[in-house]
Design a binder for these strands. Sequence first.
DNA 1: CTCAATTGACTACGAACGTTGTCAATCCTA
DNA 2: TAGGATTGACAACGTTCGTAGTCAATTGAG
Lengths: 202, 202
Amino acid sequence: MTVEGRTWAGTTLTDRRAMRRRQLLDAGLDLLGSGGSGAVSVRAVCRQSKLTERYFYENFADRDELILAVYEGVVHDAHRTLVEAVDTAGRGAEARAEAAVTAFVTLILDDPRKGRVLLLAPLADPALNRRGTERIPMFAELVREQLSDKVDEGDRAMTATALVGGLANLFTAYLGGSLDVSRERLIAHCVRLVLGANALHS
Amino acid sequence: MTVEGRTWAGTTLTDRRAMRRRQLLDAGLDLLGSGGSGAVSVRAVCRQSKLTERYFYENFADRDELILAVYEGVVHDAHRTLVEAVDTAGRGAEARAEAAVTAFVTLILDDPRKGRVLLLAPLADPALNRRGTERIPMFAELVREQLSDKVDEGDRAMTATALVGGLANLFTAYLGGSLDVSRERLIAHCVRLVLGANALHS
DNA sequence: CTCAATTGACTACGAACGTTGTCAATCCTA
DNA sequence: TAGGATTGACAACGTTCGTAGTCAATTGAG
């Protein structure tokens, strides 16, 4: 059936498989990031990736599995970027917050498809809702660690929820161009939000 | 063709027309509020409303027109409710904020379909995105009027955006049951958010 | 060169969709 | 009661979808 070692057009089978998977995921990201999950059909992904259904089903059991893989890939990338930025930054809360926000803004401006997927897909997509995928989960994490643990659990949950929603809405608006503000001011404002969150529990 | 004055099964033509329109809109609200816009197909609306395609196209040019009408109907209702609550409340900022938040929470708990449509539909639905429908617009309005007009325009826009996103995320989480907190505490927290927004501009 | 592994274009099937049209059954008015 | 207004069930057309299958062409190993 399949022979591993054999080379084909200069590349090995494993390489070609990986490349096709990447092409499919990239096409999925394109579609999910532009037209929402409604635009992600098997045929559209195949058209976009210039591959055929054969390879689609070689890589994914069905449409939903691709969508989930695209989303989780983006989340994974973003998480890695954020963790790296925060670790590189100093130990102060402000420095850490600024590093995280800057990294995120850079990420979503660098590749707006990823931004849209991160910010909108888990809300908009049935395939992702069902899996209980959280909204920008890496930020929720970051935010929670920032919050004082001396306040009530419910208050902390509400503050974290509000903060994540606020940041997400800011990023979304900025990405959509409806926020006429420089990148630096956006970042500064987000940092103020994150740092100011504790002040709510008075 | 059509004769206005005539009565049919005890009702006039205009009445029957209005009732059918209401049935269609209600079915649309059911579907949009539960399964998202993907669940709103002409056939599904007809099944749910126990009407036939004939009456669908008598009332709406196409599927998108129904979705838009459903959304705008909900927004209109919510807006009226909010304005009424705020007007009835006292003149203090806190009383107004509490009245608004209470009214909104009551509204979305009373009819979660409306809650989901208000909070999620404009983000999730292509037919609504395209029209540039804003996220919970009546809250954006309320929030903006609450903010001091002595600060910079950009800052005000960012604060309003963050606040609306934060409230929306809180309501969404509460509606989805992932916020284990009493209604009163949720409301109190939202009020604190609204009132505390100005403190951000320091 | 031969042959099996691999590729990609293509077809096929049943389902759902948006939209329009048909037609017999109902109900009131004259 | 005759006839036109009105209703509702349903068929029809073309499109897209998910998914599976066929088959000739290409490619490198022996």
